[in-house]
Nucleic acid binder design. Structure first.
Lengths: 185, 185
DNA sequence: TATTGTTATACTCTATAACTATA
DNA sequence: TATAGTTATAGAGTATAACAATA
């Protein structure tokens, strides 16, 4: 668990009744992300891998720098992810004749096949996730979420990740001594 | 970025057009989680802290074990989170006279105040997140997500966290030697 | 001097195992 | 022997700094 916050007092606020829309989006969203990651694992890929391949297929020849900026992945992490995709032969790093510092990234034929497999996985995932809804309702859901995403300034097709999630409460004092492995008494 | 997967070929599948409902839920959900965490940080709390206080207020006197099971938090992590809330005086660990191994957890008065502050933060968060929707639309969204959450077997009020997210592709070989800090050539 | 790709390092969160006290 | 709480430790993901090659 991570969240779990609904209306406190008897007052009536947005998150009344069971759970509010905001909490439900986060809850179902985390569930959806986990389920999708699990399906992707069957292909030997992680969500970041899939996002990179997809972005790359839409912007062939892009540099690592530009790709990282586009997807919000730090350079140091991107190197590792690209190495993994490179090792699998799903993408190619070609030299840039105009700037010997940079690479030009391309999806290989094998990478294209992976991309298609990812698409099939994504479709199966969506069907499973929205099993409780009719086609019309699923479209309504997508429309509402789409409008929120737009108004909130989210980049279409780019998952924001979970950068600023934990912490918020740095351990203060020296955590008073407490007998190891036992209740203090 | 993490995901980013839409329909691949020209075929028509669930995630056609812009993005599918499944991707949008994950995208907006991660955004909502980040925004909420940011607001909570102003109170010196993290999402897990808030979830613990809330769960505790609904089950006074519960043991750490039971709380961890309820929220899906591992015992080793729960100890740290409870220590932090304890240090802030938001909860109390009382001895259980019937079983000297366990504690009985209670929210303090100060913790109750925090809980109310968390409620206010949650309401403001929801209003901001759903600014693009009318009240009716927000209710529709909550209803649709609620039905998905129910059908998917999610526990009401419990955020599933992000346990099985990364990996799926363990580094294979010894990562061929490459000149340090420079392109290989 | 600035930039690209890379490595090193620290911090957090997740997960497992081991340990103490108690049952 | 089993269980509750605790600690230690390893593994990922995030983030920053530093580095070599090139601009």
């Amino acid at each position: 668990m991570i969240f779990g916050v609904k209306s406190s007092g008897p007052s009536a606020g947005p998150p009344r009744g069971g759970s509010g829309a905001a909490f439900l989006v986060a809850q179902v969203g985390a569930h959806a992300a986990s389920m999708f990651a699990e399906r992707l694992a069957a292909l030997g890929l992680s969500p970041p891998h899939a996002g990179i391949l997809r972005a790359l297929s839409g912007a062939p020849g892009i540099s690592q720098r530009a790709l990282g900026t586009m997807l919000g992945i730090l350079p140091s992490r991107l190197v590792i992810l690209l190495d993994e995709l490179d090792e699998r032969g799903l993408l190619e790093r070609r030299d840039d004749p105009d700037d010997r510092r940079t690479y030009r990234l391309f999806v290989t034929d094998k990478g294209q096949e992976s991309l298609e497999a990812i698409g099939r996985v994504a479709r199966a995932h969506q069907v499973a996730l929205c099993a409780a809804l009719s086609d019309d309702e699923r479209r309504t859901l997508a429309d509402l979420l789409s409008r929120i995403a737009d108004e909130q300034g989210l980049t279409p097709g780019v998952h924001p990740g979970f950068r600023k999630m934990g912490s918020a409460a740095p351990r203060t004092g020296p955590k008073g001594p407490r007998p190891r492995g036992a209740p203090r008494r």
